[in-house]
């Protein structure tokens, strides 16, 4: 079994290297084929008026006069050394620019993850396989909340709680007070989706013979749900959670913009607007890295939850459901 885990971690890491290599290649292709002169972009964009000497110096420094394969290799080499390039706009290394903003985004993402997971688990556990009207209300609210775009939810929250009741600040990224609304805006739509997934899984599990079997032993309903059903239903939940946390960076762009918070999302949006490619691609690489790491964690969690997988071939992995 220990071998099994080592093999799985090894396999996942190799696959992860593949994903990262793919991401690095993608960033290279984007840089290489972007219309316009790269050297010009590096020294300050279209409005800068550098001397020919400066252009020549930048071209030589970045190897822009080399053939594509040499450029590709040195691109990969730089990434391996942790050099993601220099921001066209900020003129600081991309790693530094991202590093300065990472804390605020991490704070937001963690808060949203905790809120989303707790809410969906509690609601699903409480309502799965209950009376018709309870399930109706639960699935109805899940549907509405999951269909609500986070930027609109944010506007609603701002209207009610900031400008209406004046409970929470509308902007800023300092203190717990300023975290509440952005975290809710980010977490609620996903809590709807996760709640739906978990409730469907629970209702399926609660129909299984081993649940009936557990009930015939005289266990209380809550015991049956917590001890027997929840563990089975967690598999689809963590699969979805893995995907969702990966998508949090995208969500952060919206939430941080809406609530004028510091963070990687805001950094990314201003980079997109300024055509600051190194920063955009840096965030892409970061996202791929998070994805690889998350998948490893999710795979290990599968093994913790379902010991049967420890004996199954390494490829056995619960399938990923669709958008519903």
């Amino acid at each position: 079994m220990r071998n099994k885990i080592l093999r799985l971690v090894g396999g996942r890491l190799i696959a992860g290297v593949g994903v990262l290599w793919g991401a690095a290649t993608l960033t290279f292709l984007v840089l290489y084929f972007t219309p316009g002169d790269q050297a010009q972009a590096i020294v300050g964009g279209e409005n800068a008026a550098p001397t020919p000497e400066v252009i020549a110096q930048v071209t030589a420094e970045y190897g822009l006069d080399q053939p594509w394969y040499a450029q590709y290799l040195s691109h990969l080499g730089r990434i391996l050394h942790g050099d993601l390039g220099t921001s066209y706009r900020l003129h600081t290394p991309v790693t530094q620019a991202i590093g300065e903003q990472a804390g605020a985004t991490l704070e937001l993402a963690l808060a949203a993850a905790v809120v989303g997971l707790t809410l969906s688990t509690v609601v699903a556990l409480a309502t799965a396989k209950r009376r018709r009207w309870i399930r109706g209300i639960a699935s109805g609210s899940e549907l509405v909340i999951a269909s609500t775009p986070s930027f609109w939810l944010g506007i609603l929250l701002l209207t009610v709680f900031s400008f209406g009741l004046r409970l929470f600040p509308a902007t800023g990224s300092h203190g717990l007070q300023s975290l509440v609304l952005p975290a809710l805006a980010l977490a609620l739509p996903i809590a709807g989706v996760l709640g739906h997934v978990l409730r469907e899984a629970l209702e399926e599990v609660l129909d299984e013979p081993f649940i009936v079997s557990a009930r015939t032993r005289g266990l209380a309903d809550l015991t049956v749900r917590l001890r027997h059903a929840l563990r089975h239903a967690l598999v689809p939940l963590i699969t979805m959670t893995g995907y969702w946390v990966g998508a949090l960076l995208g969500g952060a762009v919206i939430t941080e913009t809406l609530f004028t918070r510091q963070g990687i999302g805001r950094l990314l949006l201003s980079a997109v607007n300024a055509k600051d490619l190194p920063v955009v691609l840096g965030v892409v690489l970061l996202s791929a890295g998070i994805y690889v790491l998350l998948n490893l964690v999710v795979d290990l969690l599968y093994l913790v939850i379902d010991p049967r997988l420890r004996d199954a071939p390494a490829t056995a992995r619960p399938a990923v459901g669709g958008a519903s």
């Binding site: 994903v19 990966g246 997109v272 791929a288």
Partner: peptide, 13 residues
């Protein structure tokens, strides 16, 4: 590995 919004941002950049 690339969330849709992120990939869209690259394309738009």
């Amino acid at each position: 590995a690339f969330p849709e919004l992120l990939l869209a941002l690259v394309v738009i950049t």
